[in-house]
Design a protein around this nucleic acid. Structure first.
Lengths: 335, 335
DNA sequence: CTGAAAGCGCTAACAA
DNA sequence: TTGTTAGCGCTTTCAG
């Protein structure tokens, strides 16, 4: 019944007899005793908290990734502090808050390009960081092969017979969005379609880097306002695609009859509205990110590692080929 | 340049001259000094963290509520610890974790009926709790008038001419779901439709209390398997309604031509798929919850308070009345 | 294997 | 207005 011994018990120290361990545990249970988190981390000089900094929690993409994060985290003794932001400026503020006062042991930074002094700020903080959905040579990261995603999009659209493809992308400041454009355009050219930037229209900026229903809606409207009449549209996210489809409906265009739509992400609702898309393994991205962070926490000197997932096509109703064409048979409309 | 003085500066104590305050702040800035969170909360005997315990973060309803939580929280010095769970059992585990070791100053408990020993456990923890989307006389709470929601649903369906309404609800264990049923059935009877429980089919239980696309899908399938042919369906959540609509599509039924669908919540995607629904002020529920918690933290002895929001009808495409009928003109399909 | 004692970095009386 | 001092509840040498 000493004090150091209790500490040993709660830290699984080897140097404590089975007998006293049990005694301590019993009494602790009876009294409802639990070691105080703050005192513990003060003494140990480390916390058991990880921070997640997330631009726009509304975005369903993050909801999926978060599930992976939470599930993996539940297996550890760490808790998750969530900081969400609506704009890039807010991300910096929230990141600052996350790094603040040594509250957390490490941070997961989502979909945020590392600007200006952020790299130094992060290194200087001493906290390990893992980048999710972005890249920087100095930090562990998880991302998707967005260029490849763009290529797959172009190939699919061409495969189902589109001859006038177009693309609606999020802000060009979003690296994933511009990588997807690059892959898309290059695959079009590869296929003999003389593609250039006029094939691409960018969502209005602002909130959430253009990844929103409303920016997709606006972009679609302005696309048709220019007089172009594409027969297929690749959109950089499912969430934007929802807005695009709403706009098409208002324009009296039938999907997939008059025009095909292909999104990106494969958020949960996509299945239920029959939206064709390029799937990112969101859940895995989340859980892998946590794993990477745990690995680095336990061995800080390991080399920086980057994991890149490949997107894959999920063809559904909105990109169904004309009857008789079976290029998209693979997935088809669910059931 | 003393130590207590620095503490005073960082705690906005009045008893420090403008001059030294500035000096301290300057030096702190230069050195990048920040008071250590754990040490501070150990000394003060209180943390600046609030825990949110959320069943199934995938559910878009929570994503919306969380936005309200985050926004309000950003105005305080508190950070948010998120614990998500997939089943009710997991909720208990996560709640336990949230109350553990005094990590947080208070907790927000979402959509969870207080079972068995939970009331005592919560009171015993010493941490204030605010219930969101559930009710218990002993704790502050925020909820929606679900019974009224059910009534509104029935009135709307009847208003657009439905004569054989049906309802697909989540698990009967979900209090919001059964309150909605109660309101729904009583309004039907009020209108002269001899309604009883045969009008209602409950989603399969399991994950997330039946609030999921797949459980909506399954329920719709089994509803029609019984041979019933309703001309309108009230579903207890938009998320389930997505599954219901998918099922109807497969059954070859046109919405709203053959049958009308009315959801609950008004999650973001509902607007984009034209789903009629009963809107809960999710954002406000989240921000109000945080406010209530802050209030209680600052004055623990205030009387328990309960806030009840009223749902309101958002009529869209899926409940459009036959041409010529203008009962649902108010909202209509979004421009 | 167990206890004693010295902090971890800060706050909060209490003096000065 | 500022400094001194005694903890907050735990971990961690260092003895025993």
């Amino acid at each position: 019944v000493s004090i150091a011994t209790v500490s040993r018990v709660f830290n699984d120290s080897a140097r404590v007899s089975e007998k006293t361990r049990k005694k301590v545990l019993d009494v602790a249970m009876e009294l409802g005793y639990q070691p105080h988190a703050s005192a513990r981390s003060l003494a140990r000089r480390r916390t058991e908290i990880v921070s997640a900094v997330i631009p726009m929690i509304t975005n369903y993409f993050f909801a999926e990734v978060l599930r992976g994060v939470q599930d993996r985290m539940a297996e550890t003794d760490f808790d998750l502090l969530v900081f969400s932001a609506r704009t890039l400026d807010e991300v910096e503020i929230q990141l600052e808050r996350a790094l603040h006062r040594g509250r957390s042991a490490g941070v997961l930074l989502f979909s945020t390009p590392l600007m200006n002094g952020m790299v130094e700020r992060l290194s200087h903080s001493g906290q390990p960081v893992v980048l999710v959905d972005s890249f920087h040579p100095s930090f562990d990261s998880i991302s998707t092969d967005n260029r490849r995603g763009g290529e797959l999009a172009a190939e699919h659209l061409i495969g189902i017979g589109c001859v006038h493809p177009a693309m609606i992308m999020a802000s060009p400041d979003s690296r994933p969005a511009s990588d997807r454009r690059e892959g898309f355009l290059s695959a079009l050219q590869e296929a003999g379609i003389p593609a250039d930037d006029s094939f691409v229209i960018s969502s209005a900026e602002g909130m959430n880097h253009g990844y929103s229903e409303s920016s997709g809606y606006d972009a679609a409207k302005s696309l048709f306002a220019t007089g172009r009449t594409p027969d297929g549209i690749f959109v950089t996210s499912d969430i934007q695609a929802l807005g695009v489809m709403e706009a098409l409906r208002e324009l009296g265009l039938d999907v997939p009859g008059d025009i095909r739509v292909l999104g990106f992400d494969d958020i949960v609702v996509s299945k239920y509205i029959g939206l064709s898309t390029l799937r990112q393994p969101m859940y895995e991205m989340g859980s892998t990110a946590v794993q990477k962070l745990m690995d680095r926490l336990s061995s800080p000197d390991r080399p920086v590692s980057h994991t890149v997932f490949s997107p894959h096509l999920v063809a559904r109703h909105t990109s169904a080929a004309p009857a008789g064409d079976d290029t998209s048979v693979a997935a088809g409309r669910p059931a």
